[in-house]
Structures are given as structure tokens and as C-alpha cells.
């Protein structure tokens, strides 16, 4: 249970918009101290905005964010150098690696033992102090720059480290070092990690909880069980459908208001490995090939990705409900569920 005491962040009635266009709407969400949260969702869904808001780099259009039980705003002393954000494209100050990492310490007047702190931070991200500390900002590869940017944040020993696609545009070796360094921060200082990433394997492996963000809303179930649009009126009365590109379609009851997101309630899904017929008009039969199976270690749930014609859908099931299906990638299965069991959020 998350008690009030161990909530490091609490979001209340948050709404954010850019130039009047709403991009994020979060009624109520809390993050546990020392936990690792994975954020998933398509590009432009609002992950980066959420991270910027949590990093107090943006002032929300509406609502409030509590840090350690108190409402905080950008630049307030209580969050400075305690909450830190690493973006996908790092920006390095136009100075040496040493001065980049020293910046956060210097403005906090923590200049004692500067060199040893910086050596430590560089070690964490796998960069040699002697070789790199005097390099200029433009003398680094993309992966090295990202690691320097991470070191500049780790040197602050932050309470919260927000990572926005930290490994998306770096080489394999850097990605691995970044993943390790982030984990080490949590293990050494109890740093709370909130990570937005497309790297499902990594997130499912390390995170205590996964949040899926879709069209600016947090879908608590995670990234799975969502059927992306577009939805169009069906020939069948009282239904809408998502075309699958081969004449087939997923049928659903229409959303209360247009533009909402379709979510399958997995409790009502039946598996069929052979064809049987249920001819009621609102019954869906989705036949597809299993392309990916992932174990979510913390929960024991299994993520199944199905390729159905031109779309990929991911479903999350508790492992016991599917253990008798003998699933393996490449296997073809059929999911059956009623149009009524697609919920709109």
C-alpha cells in the first residue's frame, strides 16, 4: 500500500495545454518514494509533458503537483537539484565536460571536493575522468553526450530522476551504461525513477509499475489492451468498427463522445485455438500471430503481442489464465470478445 508518507509525488486535477490545445489530463496520480515507474505510450501522447511537469520545468495550466507532501512550482527551493530531468536530446552547456557536471554543484555552493564528485559521477556512466573531463561539449559522440548529461544529474544525488527516452538515440553500449547507472542511483541513494521509454523489455524488467499514456490521459493498465483508431460507423446498426485492412474489422459499441480511446476488458476475452462459431453480430473473432511474449517480472503478468493484419495489439494477462495455452511466438490464436466489452476512456 502506498501511504501518504511514502508518496513522493501527488498529482491533483492536473490539466495542461499548449496554446489552448489540451495535451495532458491527469485527475489523480501518486508515485511512491524509491519506486521505479515506466511510462509508455505513442509519440505525442503526453509522456514528455508529464515528465516536464513532474520535473517542475513547466507550470501546469491547471491543478497542482505535490512533492514530498507540499505543493511546489517551478524554481521553488524545495525541488531545485532534488528533482532532475534528463531529456532524449541532451543539451550540454558550451563548456568542458568537467564544468558541465560541476554546474549543478557550483550553483548550490557545493564546491568542496569538486573533482572527486565529478570523477565519481563519470565513473557511474562509464567515462574515464582523465580522458573526458577536459573535453569540450562538441568533442563528444551522441552517446557520450547523453552519458555526460546523466552524470551531471547523478552528481546531485537526486531524490527523483526523470528520464525521457534516455536510450532512444544512443549506441548500444551507452544505452546499457545509462540503464545501469540509473538503477544504481536507485540502489545507492533510493532515488525514485520515472522513465518514459519505448524499450518495453527494459521497463517490464525493472519497473514496479507501468503507466500507459494515451492522448494525454493515463491508462492505468499500462500500454496494453488498447485498440488504436480510427473508428468508423459500421454497417451493422448501433456499432462502430476499426478496419483491419483485409475486409475484417473489430466491432465495438460507439463511444459516448467521439475521440475517446478503446480499451478491451481482458476479463471477458476467451481464447480459441480452433474455430468455433458464435454468430451473434456483436461478437469479435480476432485471429493473429503471436509475435512477442514478455514476462513482467514484478507482477508475474504476461504481455502478449498479436499481429493481426496491419495492426499490432498487446494484451496483458495474469500468467495463470494463459498457462494452458502453450503460447510461443509464431503461434496463431483467436481471441473472442463481445463488442460490448470494449470500454471507452
Amino acid at each position: 500500500m502506498m501511504t501518504a508518507r511514502n508518496r513522493i509525488f501527488e498529482i491533483r486535477n492536473l490539466a495542461h495545454s499548449y496554446n489552448g490545445r489540451p495535451v495532458l489530463l491527469v485527475d489523480d496520480l501518486a508515485f511512491e518514494r524509491g519506486s521505479i515507474t515506466g511510462l509508455t505510450g505513442p509519440n505525442g501522447s503526453g509522456k514528455s509533458t508529464l515528465l516536464k511537469l513532474l520535473g517542475f520545468a513547466l507550470k501546469p495550466s491547471q491543478g497542482e503537483i505535490l512533492f514530498n507532501g507540499r505543493v511546489q512550482v517551478p524554481y521553488s527551493r524545495a525541488v531545485r537539484s532534488k528533482v532532475t530531468l534528463l531529456t532524449q536530446e541532451p543539451y550540454l552547456l558550451k563548456r568542458t565536460v568537467f564544468d558541465n557536471i560541476a554546474y549543478g554543484l557550483k550553483i548550490r555552493n557545493r564546491s568542496a571536493d569538486l573533482a572527486s564528485h565529478i570523477r565519481e559521477a563519470l565513473d557511474l556512466v562509464g567515462l574515464d575522468f582523465k580522458e573526458f573531463s577536459q573535453r569540450r561539449w562538441h568533442e563528444l559522440s551522441g552517446g557520450e553526450a547523453q552519458r555526460v548529461a546523466l552524470a551531471a544529474r547523478l552528481v546531485l544525488k537526486p531524490e527523483v530522476l526523470l528520464l525521457d527516452e534516455p536510450t532512444a538515440s544512443v549506441d548500444v553500449k551507452s544505452a546499457k551504461l545509462i540503464r545501469n547507472a540509473s538503477l544504481q542511483a536507485k540502489n545507492t541513494w533510493g532515488t525514485t525513477l520515472i522513465i518514459a521509454s519505448h524499450d518495453w523489455h527494459w521497463l517490464s524488467e525493472i519497473s514496479d509499475r507501468q503507466l500507459h499514456i494515451f492522448k494525454g490521459q493515463v491508462v492505468s493498465a499500462g500500454m496494453e489492451n488498447i485498440i488504436p483508431g480510427p473508428w468508423a460507423p459500421s454497417d451493422l446498426p448501433g456499432l462502430v468498427e476499426r478496419s483491419l485492412g483485409n475486409g475484417a474489422a473489430i466491432k465495438a459499441v460507439p463511444p459516448p463522445t467521439p475521440g475517446m480511446t478503446a480499451l478491451i476488458n481482458i476479463d471477458h476475452i476467451h481464447f480459441k485455438t480452433c474455430d468455433t462459431h458464435d454468430d451473434s453480430v456483436d461478437e469479435n473473432h480476432l485471429t493473429g500471430m503471436v509475435t512477442r511474449l514478455i514476462l513482467e517480472r514484478k507482477t508475474g503478468d504476461i504481455l502478449i503481442t498479436l499481429s493481426i493484419h496491419d495492426i499490432q495489439l498487446t494484451f496483458k494477462f495474469p500468467s495463470n489464465t494463459i498457462s494452458n495455452l502453450e503460447l510461443f511466438p509464431g503461434k496463431t490464436i483467436t481471441l473472442c470478445f463481445s463488442a460490448r466489452h470494449i470500454e471507452w476512456i
Partner: peptide, 13 residues
């Protein structure tokens, strides 16, 4: 990214 970075590194106004 500069302003974002400075805030992230704990800079005040």
C-alpha cells in the same frame, strides 16, 4: 533544451 537543462540542474531564476 537549455532552459530545461538549467532547471533540471537546479538553477534558480
Amino acid at each position: 533544451g537549455l532552459k530545461l537543462t538549467l532547471i533540471s540542474l537546479g538553477a534558480g531564476k
